[in-house]
């Protein structure tokens, strides 16, 4: 999967690149509109991550160019300006998603997954662990074909943990993902802990021997990768 990251802030671009490489993406970097324009003409990208606040041109102009060169590519727009009109304009031009700076890298990953899934149809195989199967298309968790009764938020948390199963997710990342960024001033709330407790309880009903979700003290949680298949 080839990704073009158009981001004028080099430090941020490098962090995104490092993160996405680990996830198995093949990344190119562009720091200016001109670089991006050249790279777009040269390579067939599957996904473009575009910061519209570029030093040499309005990123939205690049959208036209991208659509002209490569109709197939998915597009996620990033902005720190948060202008409402830009968001609307971006969607009108065919952006697949929109992220406001600062965003969490795991959130970016999730959005990219969703965009890719939308573009390439259903995810053929869900994520399995033990006797469980999480089906992101039907948004259900199954144990030997029997549906496990999770609330929507519990499902979202579990999916987020599974999607990032090699990684520690801190409580802020989880809170932001579940409740959005509604100007929450206590992002480190213990509501997540309550949800995790419930998920553990529900999983234990089917498989009491395994601690699927590992607590990282003082930080957050990690899916217990050793048991994942």
């Amino acid at each position: 999967m080839r990704v073009l990251i158009v981001e004028d802030e080099k430090g941020l671009a490098k962090e995104i690149e490092g993160f996405l490489r680990k996830e198995g993406f093949n990344c190119d970097l562009a720091h200016t509109g001109q670089q991006a324009s050249r790279l777009l003409a040269e390579n067939p990208y599957d996904l473009v991550l575009l910061d519209i606040g570029l030093p040499d041109m309005n990123g939205l102009d690049l959208v036209d160019e991208l659509r002209y060169i490569n109709e197939e590519a998915s597009l996620i727009i990033v902005t720190a300006r948060g202008e409402i009109e830009d968001k609307v304009k971006g969607f009108n031009l065919g952006a697949d998603d929109y992220l406001a700076k600062p965003f969490s890298l795991v959130e970016l990953h999730l959005r990219m997954q969703a965009v890719i899934r939308r573009r390439f149809g259903t995810n053929p195989n869900g994520i399995t662990f033990g006797d469980f199967l999480l089906d992101p298309n039907a948004k259900v968790l199954l144990n030997k074909g029997v549906s496990v009764d999770l609330t929507k938020k519990e499902y979202d948390i579990l999916y987020y943990l599974l999607l990032n199963r090699k990684r520690i997710l801190d409580r802020m990342q989880l809170t932001e993902h579940i409740w959005g960024d509604f100007f929450e001033d206590d992002l480190d709330s213990n509501y997540i802990d309550v949800h995790i407790k419930n998920i553990r309880k529900k999983l234990a009903k089917y498989d009491s021997g395994t601690d699927w979700i590992k607590t990282v003290r003082g930080v957050g949680y990690r899916f217990n990768d050793e048991w994942a298949i």
Binding site: K22, S104, I168
Partner: peptide
């Protein structure tokens, strides 16, 4: 304001999630 914040945030995030730090340092 938000661009430098996102640079710091992504760096911190990667530090936590990459798992190279000892768990005692993570908090």
């Amino acid at each position: 304001l938000l661009t430098p914040i996102s640079v710091i945030q992504s760096k911190l995030e990667n530090m936590i999630s990459e798992g190279n730090l000892p768990e005692s340092e993570l908090p």
